[in-house]
Design a binder for these strands. Structure first.
Length: 493
RNA sequence: CGCGGGGUGGAGCAGUAGUAGCUCGCCUGGCUCAUAACCAGGAGGUCGCGGGUGCAACUCCCGCCCCCGCAACCA
């Protein structure tokens, strides 16, 4: 049994959860459940990233205190993990002063003692309209593009982290896949980004940002939120006290992140860990973004899709299925209700659901609803087909191609539908030997489909066992007869 | 000259050197166990444009056009 530590990123709490957050949760959940199925000891961590000025501003708009505000948003994310069947072991909150902050301070001190933090003047252009520093590229004729005002030049003292000291080392680790970045185009992107990496700001003066973790021994400064938030992957498993959990699970086997925050995870984060003398994550999986009806999600357009509504309307597994199958694990994808319904009807209702109904009906009709399997009736052809499916499925998951893994499962479903047509069980009821072989093969395929689906569609998986009349996980399929319990698995929309 | 992704039959996508494939839709046929489902066959594409390399390019190289995303220490 191996340990398996997986993290999703911590959503930022300035706005409620949308469908993109759900995508990442679900992807991580599949890998989590898959590894549990393999018998590994798994720890799945997520949480919420709650500091920084954006949260303060969002709270002000709602006329709430920052803590009050992030409490609510954070609770929403936690609730989302519950309704979507996300099997997390730990939900970290970065405002947790008892568990998170001590870990942050511990890392800070390590970096400081290592000589990797230094103070320097930071000079930037501050736009009153933005209430933020802006880039030269956001100026036109010396004026802020958006507000048509001249920005102020502001100088402030920051701590900086010596990222440059580690960049060569990290570049090599990534090239050699010691930190494996998938998909490969993200690895290449990172390698290019590393070359231009400079030291990064590690703190801001308290006057600029007060909502955050203070620098130990220098309370006039607040730790830059990115450095602090990344440490959640350590704090959440007990790094501060070097607990048994920490010793067992560190380092992460897989960290899942969105493409927008890739560089923080593939460059700054490994540099921090090197500086702190900690082991590095073994792999980082980068997923894309979801558009809605082909458009970027935005509040202005008003197409920000609420995952709670979707799950309520369609159920957890159909939504999980769409996000995992229709959207490539490697690329951007699109959500649309029309595409969802097409996918649902074609794959879940017509292919899988109908297949289950067919098999169950055959057992009812020709065996009075109770059928006993025996391994000796399983055809070689079926055996090979099933093994081949597992092989491709495992490979796809190992390469974070979850959509391909599901494609393979559904190709087995299609195979079973064809198998029924070709072997016409209804026409061979006079030949019990033949009929037994056909039915046993079908049951074996369905059991395997249910097992294959378990990490992806946990509810559906157990529903299939239940409809077939198998025991909880169908493992004793040769011992007990299947007492079928007919039910529509996925009603058509 | 910031970085990356993409441009493939009506729609949505996969593929990646050697007869162009999948899903949906459409047409025809089969089957009757099934959620009017399932199975087979068919129509429909000069694989963005222009060059180059190869016996052979959608697939490699160069240039161009068009879409999209990310980033520039805003977390």
């Amino acid at each position: 049994m191996n340990k398996f530590y997986i993290t999703s990123s911590l959503p930022y709490t300035n706005a409620p959860a949308h469908i993109g957050h759900l995508l990442e949760f679900i992807q991580a959940d599949v890998l989590t459940r898959y590894n549990r199925l393999l018998g590994n000891e798994v720890f799945f961590l997520t949480g919420t990233d709650e500091h920084g000025r954006k949260n303060v501003q969002a709270a002000e708009k709602k006329e709430k205190s920052p803590q009050e505000f992030v409490n609510e948003i954070s609770a929403g994310f936690k609730e989302l993990t519950k309704i979507a069947g996300i099997s997390i072991d730990k939900f970290v909150r970065t405002t947790d002063q008892f568990n998170h902050w001590p870990a942050v301070h511990k890392i800070w001190k390590k970096l400081r003692d290592n000589g990797d933090l230094y103070k320097a003047e930071y000079e930037g252009l501050y736009c009153i309209g933005h209430e933020a520093f802006i880039k030269k590229s956001e100026l036109k004729d010396g004026l802020c593009l958006e507000h048509q005002t001249e920005p102020e030049k502001i100088k402030e003292e920051n701590y900086f982290f010596k990222l440059s000291k580690y960049k060569n080392q990290i570049e090599k680790l990534i090239q050699e896949d010691k930190i494996k970045i998938l998909p490969v185009h993200r690895k290449n992107e990172t390698l290019k980004l590393i070359k231009d990496s400079e030291d990064v700001s590690a703190s801001r003066p308290k006057e600029s940002i007060s909502w955050g973790v203070p620098v130990p021994g220098d309370s006039g400064h607040i730790i830059y939120i990115w450095l602090e938030a990344l440490i959640s992957y350590l704090s959440g498993i007990g790094y501060a006290d070097e607990t048994e959990v920490f010793k067992k699970f560190w380092p992460p086997d897989i960290q899942i992140v969105g493409k927008d925050i890739m560089r923080f995870h593939t460059i700054i984060w490994p540099a921090m860990l090197l500086a702190a003398g900690l082991e590095l994550p073994k792999s980082i999986y980068v997923h894309g973004f979801i558009t809605v009806d082909g458009q970027k999600m935005s509040k202005t357009i008003g197409n920000v899709t609420d995952p709670f509504d979707l799950v309520k309307k369609y159920g957890v597994d159909p939504i999980r299925y769409y996000l995992l199958r229709e959207i490539s694990s490697y690329e951007d994808g699109d959500w649309s209700e029309k595409k969802f319904e097409a996918r649902y009807n074609a794959d879940l209702a017509n292919n899988l659901g109908n297949l289950v109904s067919r098999v169950v009906a055959l057992i009812e009709k020709f065996f009075n609803g109770s059928f006993s399997c025996s391994r000796r009736f399983v055809s070689k052809e079926i055996d090979e087909k099933v093994i081949d499916t597992w092989k491709k499925y495992n490979q796809s998951i190992d390469n974070f191609k979850l959509h391909i893994a599901l494609e393979n499962v559904f190709s087995l479903v299609g195979f079973a539908n064809l198998y029924i047509d070709e072997h016409k069980p209804w026409a061979i009821s006079g030949n019990p030997e033949k009929l037994n072989i056909v039915m046993t093969n079908l049951i074996v395929i369905l059991l395997n489909v249910a097992w294959l689906l378990k990490p992806f569609l946990p509810e559906t998986s157990s529903n299939i066992f239940e409809i077939l009349g198998a025991d909880k996980d169908g493992k004793s399929w040769e011992e007990k007869p299947f007492q079928v319990r007919p039910r529509i698995l996925f009603p058509k929309i």
